[in-house]
Simulated assay, not measured.
Amino acid sequence: MTVFALARAQVQDIVRNPMLLFFFATAVVMGGLLKATMPASARDIMASAVFTATTYFVGWNIPAFTLAEEKEKRQLEALFLTPVRPWQVILVKGVLGLVGSLVFGAFMFLILDQVPRRSLLWLTAYTVLSLFTVGLGVLLGLLVRDTRSLGLGGTPVILLLMTATTLPWALVQPRVWALQAWLPTRPAVELLTAGLTGEAVPVMRNLLVMLAYTALMWLVNARLIRRLSFARN
């Protein structure tokens, strides 16, 4: 099996997976509902929350669920018996997660009827956040044994991160909001909001914080993938 054949097979598995399709549809429906119900004054903030949720619904779920499901059905072990290396398997899943997140992010502009004032900043922020969520999905997919353990162990993590990122902490708990400047939550929503509205935020600091967490996530993934490679040999 070649890498291209693997990618084609993975795409087929994704479009046939009812759970993944459910999460994709949830992101679209959520965007439509917020557009229909939110006042115009709150749409920029809500749009940032929707874009953040989209990276988790799509970017996180693709690698996490495909890895967990393949482990459950023992397909991952069979896949490792082919000439495709473990790192190539993870790379394909990561790329599909990133591409899926970017495609849905672009599609959400149509749903929300939004036009970013700083397009490059929005794209940079959304891409970095997608790399983070995809990396988290890969990490959890490598650690869990099946889809059930992913639901029990992974869902609370995702809900915590999404809640910490999307709730209006600056109004509810200013001290918590100040602390989140150094977590992978506030920098993401600040950058996305700045990309949409054009407001001034500490761009470089926020990007460095997000990149640090993203790099750490993928370094951990690299170690786990290396163990898989040794186990195969």
Rank of each mutant, 00 (worst) to 15 (best):
K73A: 10
F24E: 04
E69G: 15
A106Y: 09
W169N: 01
D113S: 04
F104K: 05
Q88L: 06
R148S: 15
A231C: 10
I14P: 12
Q75P: 10
T52A: 07
T185D: 08
T214R: 08
K71Y: 04
R8E: 05
L96F: 11
G141H: 06
R175W: 15
T66A: 11
A36N: 14
A178D: 13
A7N: 03
G97S: 07
Y213N: 03
L152I: 06
V209L: 01
P116L: 01
I158H: 08
A49D: 00
A125P: 11
M46N: 06
S101G: 05
L224D: 03
R186V: 00
I158K: 14
F230T: 11
A222Y: 14
I225H: 10
L152R: 07
T185A: 12
A164V: 03
A200Y: 02
N61H: 13
Q10V: 09
L159D: 09
V115R: 04
F107E: 14
Y126E: 13
G105E: 02
D146K: 11
A64S: 08
R74K: 13
T193K: 05
V3Q: 14
V138A: 14
L179S: 13
V201R: 00
Y213G: 00
L140T: 13
A68S: 09
T66Y: 10
L224E: 04
A178E: 09
T127E: 03
M19P: 08
M217F: 12
G195A: 03
R85W: 14
V11G: 04
A42L: 03
Y213R: 01
L139R: 06
